[in-house]
Design a protein around this nucleic acid. Structure first.
Lengths: 151, 151
DNA sequence: AGATTTCCCATGCTATCCCATAATCGACCA
DNA sequence: TGGTCGATTATGGGATAGCATGGGAAATCT
């Protein structure tokens, strides 16, 4: 399995630890890393997690910009300043930083939502609401993928 | 045979397992995979199943969209968040996730409906009704296949 | 030293594998 | 052409390994 798929709800314990779903860890291995880069999503109340190589790919796009421009600085801040590194321990758990827990409004349980090359961490209720509205948007607005027929 | 053809009714056991029809497994092999991606259909009460490479083809279209747009996020959610990976075991069975069973309203038996490059899983009664009405709709509305060419 | 974090071990649970049986299909032969 | 045999398929149940989770001990920082 090469991409992050599905929604998995796990428990966030008193120490701020949570098990990364086993299938996600398998995907991580496919990226030939153990390291995850966690960032607060710039719009939504969730944490965005990428395998380190994938994050690197994203960061590489910065190089296209002039390193002395204001745009470059702003983007660099957004990308790096509130990012955290996390490596699952022997049991497959990571600790979520306080700041990110607050940003996502997480409680006792958290939902891991697979999104292909990355995944997000939501409060379970919010994750379900997002999924619902995304599916409905796809249905009503006829959102479809470019370059082809019906999904 | 390179395409999923016909309708096959199999039993869903207490553990949520069901045998993938042997001919379908043969088609899967043609795709050079053992992995299936299962998703709830966004409109109908059924499960949609694709060979992993076929799903990947679909997902690749997302890359055409700006990765920070709202449309991209919504689409990614709709596509990935409720997807499940399934690999037939040595006996050719897969387990259907609880959420998908509920979505499709499945009971003791399930119908596998071949649809070419993908197949769907329905409650048998619904499957029969669908094929009936689909044929009728095609006849009444004079539906034809796009892409022309020889009959 | 106190507090916080990381590592390590223990446990219940669930999904996965494995084997055994039954039913079906197709082939081959008379 | 009808019947029998063989092989593959579908299905059921039990064993096993992996996973999520909780608590405690060692290590680290301040």
């Amino acid at each position: 399995m090469g991409q992050f798929l599905g929604t998995h709800v796990n428990r966030l314990d008193r120490k701020g630890r949570v098990s990364v779903p086993a299938p996600f860890r398998a995907v991580l291995a496919r990226f030939e890393t153990t390291e995850l880069i966690l960032r607060p999503h710039h719009k939504s109340a969730c944490i965005e997690a990428r395998p380190e190589p994938e994050f690197r790919r994203l960061a590489a796009r910065l190089d296209a910009l002039d390193s002395f421009s204001d745009d470059h600085d702003a983007l660099a801040f957004a990308l790096f300043a509130s990012a955290h590194s996390a490596i699952p321990d022997a049991e497959g758990r990571i600790v979520l930083p306080e700041a990110l827990i607050a940003h996502a409004g997480l409680g006792e349980t958290v939902a891991f939502v697979g999104l292909g090359r990355l995944f997000q961490i939501w409060a379970p209720e919010e994750a379900e609401r997002m999924t619902r509205s995304a599916v409905q948007a796809a249905r009503e607005r006829g959102l479809t993928l470019p370059g082809g027929g019906t999904a």
